[in-house]
Simulated assay, not measured.
Amino acid sequence: MSRQRNPWLLPVSILAALLLGLLPLPEMLQALRPYWLALVLVYWLIEAPERAGLGLAFLTGLCADLAFGSILGEQALRLVIMAFIVGRFRAQLRFFPLSQQALAIGGLLLNDRVVAAVLHLMLDEPQLPASFWWSPLTGMLLWPPVFVLLDRFRLGGRG
């Protein structure tokens, strides 16, 4: 059964996304850094909802908060909100062509930026520069290759 073929793939992909988020980038590219954890988590929420859900989103977000040194619970909340939206619209997202999925993912990532901005405003934390609003566009453009790569690994190269 293909679901059980690679049980290690979900945790390894989450760990890889976490490491990609920690990878240093030149200052001018920082604003374009995609939210790798969100991209990988959304893939698993769409393709394997029996293995990924709100709990995984919360735990992944807490790990990210600790690893990135952000406000404890910020990324956890952002990923749980994203997981809830994806879970609610999973049936529609699953059957969109990849290009339409990418647009939907761009909307999700833009919503994530709004949630982050509101959280920072409510907690009187410094706001990210305006250039960081470009990150959802990068994530949207990277969605097709991320989806195809994870799908190939999940299906064992027969997809």
Rank of each mutant, 00 (worst) to 15 (best):
L23H: 05
A17L: 05
Y35I: 01
L23M: 10
V146N: 03
L19G: 08
P136K: 12
L56D: 11
L9A: 14
L29H: 00
P126C: 00
E27M: 09
L66D: 06
E47K: 11
T60V: 01
A130S: 13
L22P: 10
L119P: 03
L150E: 12
R154I: 08
P145A: 06
N6G: 05
M28T: 02
L98P: 09
V12I: 15
G159P: 01
G107P: 08
Q127M: 05
F147E: 08
L103Q: 04
S131W: 11
P97S: 08
A117H: 08
W36S: 01
L123Y: 08
G53V: 06
S99N: 13
G53A: 12
L77K: 05
A64K: 06
L25A: 14
G87D: 06
I81L: 14
Q101E: 11
V80F: 04
R78E: 03
E27I: 09
M28G: 02
D151W: 12
V40S: 02
L72N: 13
E47Q: 12
I85V: 15
V42H: 04
G53T: 11
L9P: 03
E74S: 10
P11W: 12
L29Y: 05
R5E: 02
L66Q: 07
P26E: 06
A117V: 11
L23W: 06
R33D: 04
S135H: 07
L37F: 03
L142T: 01
A48L: 13
R51V: 03
